[in-house]
Design a protein around this nucleic acid. Structure first.
Lengths: 227, 227
DNA sequence: ACCTGAACACCGTTCAAGT
DNA sequence: ACCTGAACACCGTTCAAGT
């Protein structure tokens, strides 16, 4: 009897990465092991190591592929619109693939200027220049924007990943809000006071509002005599 | 013959966490295992599990302790100064304990509103309110600021952790700058153009410049009729 | 050149047994 | 109540052997 899952054609790096992404999407980070991967691909561990150096490289490739696809959709528009598009592309990709949040952080820690960072930095930076930020401030300004985007997208990944699969979003926010209202008034007066604002908020809108805040800062500091 | 390292007194959760931080500082994230930890504490694995539920909880406790200590120094000052102090507290802690970058990201992914986030959110939020940001915008504004701080501090943790221990900082920046200058002109025109700005920059100054950018945005959007 | 799969070293965790 | 340490299940990785 032939194996239930038969390889239709030869193994390749791309097929391995693709299978890895599928496993990550369906079973989470803990669901991707060399055992599950070899089973899914109906092969042996050594076969995978022939195409990929180690698990870290496999995860990097998976992260890279998903991010590259998310940023590929280049819509023409004003610099502000382009920046929003790049940021939202990352935001949405993390929402679709919750493991991206952790993985991006780990990859950033391992190779700070890897291809993912470079891609986003370049994409954002071009638009920062198009905005009219003067030459000596391009690096710092772009870095600040990218930092916000990574921080906010990561924070959000945490939020969405933390919610149990079946739970309703509104229910979850309600629970957080209630929990905040019950914090110690001496230690957490601010968080308590702000608890109500959590209840109805939309993550995506909040992400964009924060982005607008940073853009407003860039305008105020670097483009004050513009137009 | 008695063991080289003898326990001077009873084990405790605090002693275990303290030893874990020491191992993380000296040997990195890979250096902390239950084997090295039991050896250092001259005990058995079961003893540690009596005080700590699992490795995740141990890492959370280590992260929490270091962050709490870093934020404890409360210097009185204007809201802006306080915000800078909190942000720099986190920034410096990550620089002193490079494993914090990864660990914060992982903890954020596991328990988004854990004590670390809550601590920073509360600390920043109070000052945002003191700045005069109107009630309905406190949550979103504080979130944006915290996102930038986490993103930038994390990004920086990556940068400093990536540098080999002995290497000179200036040398490293020089290498990055040179690498950027050699990127493909078609794919990375912006990054190439900005390579020179990398060479002399100071991470701490850049972190603060970005923070000022966000603060300027908050002023422009929410405090425009202030004073 | 590409793949197989048993074997290895190492990890977090458990648990019967001690004090 | 607190600790010991052998044992267990599982993981990433290697490598002699096959085609």
């Amino acid at each position: 009897m032939p194996p239930r899952t038969r390889r239709s054609d030869a193994l390749s790096r791309d097929r391995i990465v693709e299978a890895a992404v599928e496993l990550l999407d369906t079973a989470g980070e803990a669901g991707l092991t060399f055992r599950t991967l070899t089973e899914r691909l109906a092969t042996g561990a050594g076969a995978i190591y022939w195409h990929v150096a180690n698990k870290g490289e496999l995860l990097d490739a998976a992260t890279d592929g998903v991010i590259a696809a998310a940023l590929a959709a280049g819509s023409p528009g004003s610099p502000r619109e382009e920046i929003r598009a790049v940021a939202l592309g990352l935001f949405d990709a993390i929402e679709r693939h919750p493991w991206l949040g952790t993985q991006l952080a780990l990859q950033l820690a391992r190779t700070p200027w890897g291809s993912v960072t470079a891609r986003i930095f370049e994409g954002i930076g071009r638009q920062v220049r198009a905005l009219g930020v003067p030459a000596g401030h391009l690096f710092t300004t772009t870095s600040a924007l990218v930092s916000y985007i990574f921080g906010a997208a990561g924070q959000n990944a945490a939020n969405t990943a933390g919610v149990p699969a079946g739970a309703d979003r509104a229910e979850f926010l309600d629970a957080v809000s209630t929990a905040w209202e019950e914090l110690d008034p001496d230690e957490y007066p601010f968080t308590r006071a702000v608890a109500a604002e959590v209840r109805g908020h939309d993550d995506r809108e909040q992400f964009l509002a924060g982005l607008d805040l940073v853009l407003a800062g860039i305008t105020a500091v670097h483009l004050s005599r513009a137009k």
